[in-house]
C-alpha cells in the first residue's frame, strides 16, 4: 500500500536549487535510508515532506496523517527549558489530537513508553540536563508515543555513543519488522544504515539512486557514480 508519493518535487531558495525534480514512492512497511553527502538536500527533503519548508514545484501526497518525527538534536535548542522528560514525551500525543487535555489513558501511555525504552531513571529530570543519548531516547519516545504509521528520523544517532547507537538502530528495526511501521531514516553513513534499511534513496540534490540495498550494491550505474572501491566499501560494511 502506497503511503507517500512524491512527484516532480523541487525546492528553490532565492535562486539556488536545493532539490530538483525528486520522484519516489514509499510503501507501507518500507524502511528507507535517505543518504547522501553533506549539503545534498537530505534534511531539506524531510522538512519539505513534513511541510516545514515550502516546496517550489511538485506534489507530495500522504495516505496517513499519523507521522512521528525525530529531528537532528542540533535543532532542539534550549538547555534551560524548564520541563522534565515526562512532560516532553507527553507532548508527542498532541499530533492531530482533538482534545487539548491529557487523559489518564494518555498518562498511562507515557509510562508505558518510558518503560519500553528503559528510561524510568530520567523521567523526572530536566530535558536540558540530559546527555545527547538520553535526549535522543526521550525524543524517540515522543515520536512514537502517538503510534504513528510513518516514522521520520533525521540523523538521529549523531550524538550517540556506539552502545546507544546499536540500541537505537535495533529498536527502529523492531518497530519496522514487528509493528510494520514505515521508517524513513536520514543518514550520511550508508554502511551503518545499510545493515537495517530495506531501501536506499541516494540524494545529491537529485535522486541518484532509489532501490533496495542489494540493487544498490549491484548497480553498474552506482559503480560508475561512486567508483568500484567506494561501492565495495559501502556494501562490504553492510555484509
Amino acid at each position: 500500500m502506497k503511503q507517500i508519493e512524491v512527484r516532480n518535487l523541487s525546492v528553490k531558495y532565492q535562486n539556488a536549487i536545493i532539490l530538483n525534480n525528486i520522484n519516489f514512492t514509499v510503501d507501507k512497511g518500507d524502511y528507507i535510508a535517505v543518504v547522501g553527502p553533506n549539503g545534498s538536500g537530505k534534511t531539506t527533503l524531510i522538512k519539505t515532506l513534513l511541510a516545514l519548508i515550502e516546496k517550489s514545484e511538485g506534489k507530495i501526497e500522504f495516505s496517513t496523517k499519523k507521522i512521528g518525527y525525530l529531528q537532528q538534536k542540533i535543532s532542539i535548542a534550549d538547555s534551560n527549558f524548564p520541563s522534565n522528560v515526562r512532560e516532553i514525551i507527553r507532548s508527542g500525543l498532541l499530533i492531530n489530537k482533538k482534545s487539548k487535555i491529557y487523559s489518564s489513558i494518555d498518562n498511562e501511555k507515557v509510562d508505558s513508553i518510558i518503560e519500553k525504552l528503559g528510561i524510568e531513571d530520567i523521567k523526572y529530570k530536566l530535558i536540558g540536563k540530559l546527555s545527547g543519548g538520553q535526549i535522543q531516547k526521550a525524543l524517540l519516545a515522543r515520536a512514537i508515543i502517538s503510534d504513528p504509521d510513518i516514522l521520520i528520523l533525521d540523523e538521529p544517532t549523531t550524538a550517540l555513543d556506539p552502545n546507544s547507537r546499536d540500541f537505537f538502530y535495533n529498536y527502529i528495526k523492531e518497530l519496522n519488522e514487528k509493528e510494520n511501521k514505515t521508517i524513513i531514516l536520514v543518514s550520511h553513513d550508508i554502511g551503518a544504515v545499510g545493515k537495517f534499511a530495506k531501501k536506499i534513496l541516494y540524494l545529491d540534490r537529485v535522486v541518484i539512486f532509489y532501490g533496495t540495498f542489494s540493487e544498490f550494491c549491484h548497480s553498474s550505474d552506482m559503480t560508475k557514480y561512486f567508483g568500484n572501491i567506494s561501492q565495495h566499501f559501502f556494501c562490504q560494511r553492510h555484509n
Binding site: L52, I67, Y69, Q71, S83, I88, L94, N96, Y102
Partner: peptide, 16 residues
Amino acid sequence: NDLFLISYDEDYARIS
C-alpha cells in the same frame, strides 16, 4: 499544551 509544544519545539508543533 499547544503553547508548551511551540515553546519547546516549533517544528514539532507544526507537524502535530
